[in-house]
Amino acid sequence: MNEILRFANMGANIVRTTTLTVDSTVKSGGVLNLPFSTREAESVSMKSTFWIQELAEKDKAGKPLMRLQYSQVVMLNFFSPREDGLPERAAWPHISIATLSKVPAEYKLVQG
């Protein structure tokens, strides 16, 4: 899945990257499920990597452009009824990936 993020980096001049990793499967980790979501599925694990990137390109104020890329996999156990009435779990990966660009302050929307 990270191949898509590498494709998004083509042509980008990334000067610096800070990497943050979150993994619920490590000893001190875990997943907390919300009550309304556990009726249909249970999150059993989550792994995410975030890349905070400073680009060589500058904004109008001379500050470097910033981006955030991330990839995340949440493993879900869906409950699917069996013919004998007992619940059956079907494991399914929920994958999210994105490249986000920081918006300069002059472009931020004003709530009113």
Rank of each mutant, 00 (worst) to 15 (best):
V110L: 12
Q53T: 00
S48K: 06
S43I: 03
P64L: 00
A12E: 11
G85H: 00
M1T: 10
L86K: 11
Y107H: 15
A12G: 01
S28R: 15
L55H: 08
D84T: 03
T38P: 03
M66W: 09
A98T: 03
A12F: 09
P35H: 02
I52K: 10
R67E: 08
P87M: 05
F36I: 10
L55S: 01
Y70G: 04
F36L: 09
L65P: 00
H94L: 10
R6A: 09
K60S: 13
F36S: 10
R39H: 12
F50M: 06
G30V: 00
M75R: 05
A90M: 14
E40N: 13
A98Y: 06
E57H: 06
L65A: 07
S37W: 08
L32I: 13
Y70S: 03
P87Q: 04
T25C: 01
V73I: 12
E57P: 01
I14L: 00
M10E: 13
G112I: 05
H94W: 11
T25M: 07
L20R: 15
V15R: 13
K47E: 03
L34R: 10
L34M: 11
T19Y: 06
E54F: 04
V110T: 14
Q69T: 04
E40C: 08
A41S: 14
V103C: 09
F50L: 11
I95L: 14
K108E: 14
F78C: 06
N13P: 01
L100K: 13
I52T: 08
G29R: 01
E106A: 02
L76K: 07
V73R: 02
S80I: 12
I97W: 05
W51M: 03
E54W: 01
L5P: 02
N33E: 06
T99F: 00
E106W: 10
L5Y: 04
K47L: 06
K102V: 03
P35K: 07
K27H: 12
G62F: 04
N9T: 05
M66T: 08
E40W: 11
E57W: 00
M75A: 00
L55R: 04
M75Q: 11
H94D: 15
V26N: 07
K27E: 14
E106H: 13
M66C: 07
L100V: 07
M66F: 07
M10H: 11
S24L: 01
P87C: 02
I97V: 15
G62H: 09
A56Y: 10
S28A: 15
Q111T: 14
P93Y: 03
V31C: 06
G29Q: 05
N2D: 15
L68R: 02
L32G: 07
R39E: 13
V22Q: 11
A8D: 05
E54S: 01
S101M: 10
T19Q: 13
G112Y: 08
M46W: 05
P87Y: 09
I95Y: 12
D23P: 00
A61Y: 15
P87N: 05
S37M: 15
P87T: 07
D23V: 01
G112D: 12
P93A: 04
I4F: 09
E106D: 13
